[in-house]
């Protein structure tokens, strides 16, 4: 079996609990927030490294983000990835899922040889989960979303166990393929400090390196716009104490639960 060329798309996100809405400007205030690698992307990196251990090949990380994202990609290199690429340009800013998946797809094509693209199931900031399928469409290849386990079949196709409602299904897809990895399906290995010291530099590409029309990137290329932004809830729990008779408490409880789940 030939070695696998794996590309993992990762995103540097602000820690969710440290992002707030500025009540005056009604805009997102993420300046003070610490950042981290999007947690599901960590599972994707681990999945990629485990596949490389099993089948041989290489693992490249690809991210779109501001220059400060580079040290976070170093974390992925310290986990064992071979290369890291950062798409960084003001022109990429303000992108919704359409230009994001487009830019990543172009980045993947520029990296060149690849069989498999892995992504985290969604990002903790945008939480759309739409980018992996979008990348697959731009690249015109097969996809498997919400994957929990991957393996190669003897005929060279990819076997993916993926979540469906109320269970899971096992599918075989042809390579190349784009896969999104479910949050928490594995335990991401910790960094190897030796690799941290010897990791290669992150390759940075801007919009013109990708050779794409700036009008299809970033804010300009996004069909959707954000109307209003507001604070949903404080990071602290609500701590609402229910009063009344048992029946009243039960009724209130049922109401609170029904607001979130149907059963």
């Amino acid at each position: 079996m030939k070695p696998l060329g794996i590309i993992v798309c990762v995103k540097v996100v602000p820690k969710p609990e440290e992002v707030s809405v500025n009540p005056e400007t009604r805009t997102l205030d993420r300046a003070k927030a610490r950042s981290e690698l999007n947690p599901p992307d960590m599972n994707a990196i681990e999945m990629a490294l485990a596949l490389r251990e099993r089948y041989g090949g290489s693992v490249s990380l690809l991210s779109m983000g501001p220059p400060f994202a580079a040290p976070y990609l170093q974390v992925g290199l310290a986990m064992g990835a071979d290369h890291a690429y950062l798409l960084s340009d003001r022109l990429f800013g303000g992108a919704d899922t359409l230009p994001t998946s487009f830019a990543l797809a172009r980045g993947i094509q520029k990296i060149g040889e690849w069989d498999l693209v892995l992504c985290g199931e969604e990002s903790s900031d945008g939480a759309t989960g739409q980018v992996p399928a979008g990348i697959a469409e731009w690249l015109d290849c097969s996809q498997a979303t919400y994957a929990m386990d991957l393996a190669l079949l003897p005929d060279g196709r990819l076997r993916a166990e993926r979540e469906i409602r109320g269970g899971h299904e096992v599918i075989a897809v042809s390579l190349p393929a784009v896969v999104s990895v479910k949050l928490g399906v594995n335990e991401p290995r910790f960094m190897d400090m030796e690799l941290r010291r010897t990791a290669p530099a992150v390759t940075v590409w801007n919009a013109s390196d990708l050779g794409v029309d700036p009008a299809s990137l970033g804010f300009e290329g996004s069909p959707t716009v954000v109307g209003a932004v507001w604070q949903a809830k404080s990071p602290e729990r609500r701590r609402e104490f229910l009063d009344g008779t048992l029946q009243e408490k039960a009724r209130l409880l049922a109401e609170r639960i029904r607001a979130l789940v149907s059963f």
Binding site: E36, M42, V75, E187, P188, F190
Partner: peptide
């Protein structure tokens, strides 16, 4: 244990 170490890192 890796999860614990990541918690310290992040």
């Amino acid at each position: 244990l890796p999860t614990m170490l990541w918690a310290i890192h992040w």
